[in-house]
């Protein structure tokens, strides 16, 4: 495997108020991948992104962007990165065209009207190029933020909660855009609350919780490794409560008593399924359907977060 495009080593950040936002994060981001960072509010996702982009100063740790130290060699590091922040912060009185062109210049690229036009067209902003920022809807502003981030043709794109408060259509457009960028070789790091977003788009998923990277892996591997399967047993006749004889399996009663659900781990030595089936026979509980499904990233996420709360 080639060198990672971003290498984060021992990154720590304590804010002046004493909040420890990051407690030593190590993370390698591979060139050309889409990495989704999941985590609840206040987990440290935005702090992590802000440090890589140079907006927040780390307390300790090191970041290399394509081999360039992001503090010592900040010009080389930063000119490779485009950032779409979470907040919609724009210059209200500027036109779309002016604000996107401004970003290109700010990031050290010579004027290139054709490039800007191309970006605006891709984001369906061309018709709005003369509009002032304050005249745009929230969704349009979000598009402009993306256009600004892409204006200097970055190799790495950070999207901080790109689809928060965005309608379905724009979300789909955005996913489409991200896929195209990836096809062009852009490395994309996105943070999100929406598990479906990570599931839909990411190659790898990292879960951040209370300033620590608690899980990281290929989306599929992560799901297989951590994923549990659920066996749903649809009963002939509804039951009011789970019989005492089934207590050891920790079943859940669903569908108004018409279904029993059993969660199991495919990697465990014993899934417990054969025993459960025998016990159902012994108790003369008849069923008409059996179905299993893989738990989603959302389930994994919820269980990770719950683990912490219980701890």
């Amino acid at each position: 495997m080639s060198d990672p495009i971003i290498r984060i080593e021992g990154l720590k950040k304590s804010y002046a108020g004493g909040v420890e936002a990051l407690k030593g994060v190590d993370l390698d981001i591979e060139k050309g991948e889409i990495l989704a960072l999941l985590g609840p509010n206040g987990a440290g996702k935005t702090t992590l992104i802000s440090i890589v982009c140079g907006i927040v100063t780390p307390t300790s740790g090191k970041i290399l962007v394509d081999g360039h130290d992001n503090q010592g060699d900040f010009r080389a590091a930063r000119s490779m990165i485009g950032l779409v922040p979470q907040e919609l912060t724009t210059d209200a009185f500027e036109s779309v065209w002016a604000t996107v062109s401004f970003s290109r210049g700010l990031f050290g690229k010579p004027r290139d009207d054709r490039k800007i036009e191309d970006i605006l067209r891709r984001l369906t902003l061309w018709d709005k190029r003369k509009a002032k920022m304050m005249e745009l809807s929230g969704g349009m502003k979000r598009r402009v933020m993306i256009a600004k981030a892409l204006s200097h043709e970055p190799e790495i794109l950070f999207l901080d909660e790109p689809t928060a408060g965005v309608d379905v259509e724009l979300r789909r457009d955005m996913w489409e855009l991200v896929r195209k960028l990836r096809a062009d070789g852009t490395t994309i790091i996105l943070t999100t609350h929406y598990i479906e977003e990570a599931e839909e788009m990411a190659d790898r998923v990292g879960v951040i919780r209370k300033g620590e990277l608690v899980a990281l892996g290929e989306k599929k591997a992560l799901m297989a490794q951590m994923g549990q399967r659920t066996l749903k047993i649809t009963l002939d006749d509804a039951i009011a409560e789970i019989p005492a004889g089934l207590a050891e399996w920790g079943l859940a009663l669903e569908d108004d008593g018409h279904a029993l659900c059993y969660r199991f781990d495919t990697h465990a030595e014993h899934t417990g399924i054969p025993g459960l089936m025998r016990r159902l026979d012994e108790l003369h509980i008849c069923y008409k359907d059996l179905a299993t499904h893989q738990s989603s990233l959302e389930d994994i996420f919820v269980s990770l977060v719950h683990e912490e709360r219980a701890a």
């Binding site: 982009c53 140079g54 907006i55 900040f74 010009r75 080389a76 590091a77 930063r78 000119s79 990165i81 950032l83 922040p85 907040e87 912060t89 724009t90 210059d91 209200a92 970003s103 700010l106 990031f107 050290g108 600004k148």
Partner: peptide, 14 residues
């Protein structure tokens, strides 16, 4: 005040 400073801080400008 508006928050657009993020762009200046993240730009390759000294």
């Amino acid at each position: 005040f508006t928050g657009t400073i993020y762009e200046l801080l993240s730009a390759p400008i000294s």
